[in-house]
Design a protein around this nucleic acid. Structure first.
Lengths: 168, 168
DNA sequence: GGAGGAGCTGAAGTGGGCTTGAGATCAGGC
DNA sequence: GCCTGATCTCAAGCCCACTTCAGCTCCTCC
């Protein structure tokens, strides 16, 4: 805003520049701005002018997407990062460690599923004897009226949390 | 339909039974039916009556969900399974192997990300020297006008399909 | 035979992460 | 000064996997 640094033309990027450099569509950038994930100064004619370091924020958003992290969560993390300046190495380490943990959780989840699935291939699960994946109806029925569910709720995000609950 | 087996009351399940046994909401079952993933006979009063083996299909849908597989893909796989009878061990092995492959792909993806992220934590990426994750703008800029993107497509589903395309 | 819970249909709503469209303004090269 | 392409805003639309709702019928038990 009232930064004393004079804005030279090379100092900032137009939205088109950012689109070309990141591959993120202008409409997505608008959307991220709406969510408060990124910000831009405006030209005299009300056009967005991005400081160069904003590219890094956008890169982080893209990383988060690859990690399967929702924008709401990204927002939370970004709330701790400076919007007007380049984040420090410490900032980045904090974020990347946090996301690394997430990643490991997801990996553990997948490995669990993999074990179950591998077991199933071997055991010929359709006989429904000891399969963990295809929870047999008969056992369910035999367990009485208590609703022993398969433990999978509707929403993906909720589901992931549940599985984490189970695994930890 | 014109199956000669007499329908004894115990032979089929009401939608409520299925809900209790699988934990899947009735509305979701309606939806799956709409998509052709499951089917039910109807009572004289137009109520759904599920053959017992339909529980297995539903279990498979739940497994697919845990694997992050979309219903469209499930549908594709289900097209090769018998709707009116219990699938064979071979059928199940085919499906589970297919999904197992998927799972491994996803795991490899995560491991790749993990490596990148770990590397980044160590290298202090904010200096933007050799980071694979935070693709430095300067390098991009130095590479000339060619749109060297970050290589991350918009949609998760599209991305998954892309990966399949690449891997198969 | 009556009460009340279970089930039916079709349409609309939800949420995340955007895209598309309309209609207008801005920026920069000739 | 003009033309063209870039950009602006706001609203609406889209896809997926469901859920919710309204208004009605069915089934079971007493």
């Amino acid at each position: 805003m009232s930064v004393s640094v004079p804005k030279e033309p090379d100092d900032t990027l137009t939205i088109g520049d950012v689109v070309r450099r990141t591959g993120v569509a202008a409409s997505a950038l608008h959307y991220y701005e709406q969510l408060g994930l990124i910000a831009a100064h405006r030209s005299a004619g009300n056009q967005r002018r991005y400081p160069r370091h904003m590219i890094r924020r956008i890169s982080l958003i893209l990383v988060a997407k690859r990690l399967g992290i929702g924008l709401a969560d990204v927002r939370e993390v970004f709330a701790t990062l400076p919007m007007e300046t380049v984040p420090t190495v410490r900032d980045w380490q904090r974020v990347s460690r946090r996301w690394h943990t997430r990643l490991e959780d997801r990996k553990r989840e997948i490995e669990q599923l993999e074990r179950e699935l591998t077991g199933c291939i071997g055991c010929g699960c359709l006989s429904m004897t000891v399969c963990q994946l295809l929870n047999p109806e008969d056992e369910l029925g035999a367990q009485g009226p208590g609703p022993r569910r398969l433990g999978l709720s509707a929403d993906r995000r909720v589901r992931q949390r549940r599985e984490l609950d189970v695994l930890q």
